[in-house]
């Protein structure tokens, strides 16, 4: 008996759509994906919408409005397996920079007619609202990892989402350490794998877009960055990016700013 194709859904919250595009970017494999699953809800790809329940749901973006906070509950109810894709869905995204500021003031500064804006004080990860089965990091996600996780879920294999630091990927690929050889500040030692060391491969320090690794030694990392001549403000700014909503990056960001003010 032929197995029923698994139903796949993709939902978007506060985000730039880049992670969903990673799926569409799988040009060589796109037809195979379309053939292997029943794409039931994926607005970026098709206006045909089918109702749940879904076997696998990919969620992009963070929760920033009352409406979205409710919507994610409904999506969870309709999803057997829920996978967040990208930094926004997994950590709150770059928009979580607002979490440490006065939201009313920001709305006033940014919008001409602030009275039409209805928003929460914070931008939060999907896992702050519902149970998440697997989290894919990155800004954007790595399409190879996305495909590998989808493949595993389709065939009943436990998806492999490694959590080691970027340094291991550099070493496996023979990439020369930019921190040791060049003195370039690099967040690789505290950053989660997934990008295959994209930045160090091109001689740049890691920006930390995959967020903290499973053992982010941020205090030890601060000692290294200070030795490389970074000020507390610069160290804080290094964490003020796509994963500023995730601990311990959030705390390092706040700590660095506080120190700098003193």
């Amino acid at each position: 008996m032929k197995q029923r194709k698994k139903k796949l859904a993709v939902f978007k919250f506060a985000s730039c759509d880049g992670c969903q595009l990673s799926l569409l970017d799988c040009e060589d494999e796109l037809l195979a994906v379309a053939g292997a699953v029943d794409i039931a809800h994926f607005l970026e790809a098709s206006s045909r919408i089918r109702r749940g329940p879904y076997d696998v749901t990919l969620v992009e973006g963070s929760v920033t409005t009352e409406h979205d906070a409710l919507r994610i509950q409904k999506i969870r109810e309709q999803s057997k397996i829920l996978v967040t894709i990208g930094a926004c869905a997994t950590s709150g995204g770059i928009q979580a920079l607002r979490n440490s500021r006065d939201i009313a003031e920001m709305v006033r500064v940014v919008y001409a007619s602030p009275q039409y804006i209805s928003t929460l004080d914070t931008s939060t990860a999907i896992s702050d609202h519902v149970h998440v089965d697997y989290e894919l990091r990155g800004c954007p996600v790595n399409k190879h990892q996305l495909l590998s996780v989808l493949t595993s879920l389709l065939h009943g294999q436990v998806p492999r989402v490694p959590s080691h630091p970027v340094c291991l990927d550099c070493k496996r690929s023979g990439v020369v350490c930019v921190s040791v050889v060049d003195g370039t500040p690099c967040l690789g030692p505290v950053t989660h794998t997934g990008c295959d060391a994209l930045c160090p491969r091109y001689g740049r320090g890691c920006f930390g877009c995959y967020g903290p690794s499973d053992t982010p030694q941020v205090a030890a990392q601060a000692l290294v960055l200070r030795r490389q001549g970074q000020s507390d403000a610069q160290i804080a700014a290094g964490y003020a990016s796509f994963n500023v909503g995730m601990q311990p990056f959030a705390q390092e960001f706040a700590k660095g700013l506080a120190k700098d003010k003193r």
């Binding site: 630091p165 340094c167 070493k171 030692p189 030890a220």
Partner: peptide
């Protein structure tokens, strides 16, 4: 307290 657990030494 100083170790980054970055795996570099082992690699």
């Amino acid at each position: 307290a100083r170790c980054l657990a970055c795996t570099n030494c082992t690699q």
